[in-house]
Nucleic acid binder design. Structure first.
Lengths: 122, 122
DNA sequence: TCCTTTAGTTAGCAAATGCTAACTTTAAAA
DNA sequence: TTTTAAAGTTAGCATTTGCTAACTAAAGGA
């Protein structure tokens, strides 16, 4: 996996888990992503260094303002791409999987075009 | 870059260069991709081991049957995705760049759906 | 014939990610 | 209070890809 993709996946995961629970810890990320704990420890450490995530004394993860922006950006791509693929007749599971891989690699320009296009179908 | 993506890019490059010239060598791949020669030496060595590329005594690269199949598969994705993005109003350069990144990550199912969709516009 | 340019190779570095093993710490259970 | 289970951390391995440095080999020019 690409380095940027990896970071984005961690951010997105924290964002998604934060919507379901208000006390997200590393172990939750570990389980959700299916990665070993040390992988999560390091990855989140890097996100902290970059100022995208904060971990409080009790081990609760919070996205910073910028971290949340980035997470939302990816998550929006995720949902829009999934819809687009489903709109073309792809089943939900496959559409989600594809969106999840592609969301990291689409340029702003192309994503905007897709988003505008999809807006017609709402 | 992902390992599979890397291999696919080399195959696609050899395929593209083979359409312009019938004597493609490693140095050509090196220049086209902008990679140093040792990177190409190793990458093509791996493709040879996998039976996807053959290098004859004079250093000319040929895709094997399977190598060509894979290269064509990727190249088709490249062209179809580029068209789709341009169809949504994206400029050619951006469309090509995006297609080039995404072509490696789309499932067969989703690509088929896109392809069918694009067929309507021909 | 000798020299230079070009293609290709070998060896080894750096970066990044995921993993296991083993340890610490904390918190809950008995 | 003691024990046990769960969360995290540290250390270090493996894999993969691209790079540079330095070398070999072959082809062409002078």
């Amino acid at each position: 996996m690409d380095s940027r993709e990896s970071a984005e996946m961690y951010l997105e995961t924290i964002y998604i888990l934060s919507q379901k629970s208000d006390a997200v810890r590393k172990i939750d990320v570990s389980r959700y992503m299916g990665y070993a704990k040390p992988s999560v420890t390091r990855a989140i450490g890097l996100l902290e260094k970059r100022g995208l995530v904060n971990v409080d004394d009790s081990g609760i993860l919070k996205l910073s303002k910028e971290g949340e922006q980035q997470a939302k950006r990816i998550y929006e791509r995720h949902t829009v791409l999934t819809k687009m693929f489903m709109n073309l007749g792809v089943d939900e599971e496959t559409a989600t999987e594809d969106a999840c891989r592609i969301e990291h690699y689409i340029s702003e320009t192309t994503f905007d075009a897709i988003k505008k296009h999809m807006a017609k179908y709402e």
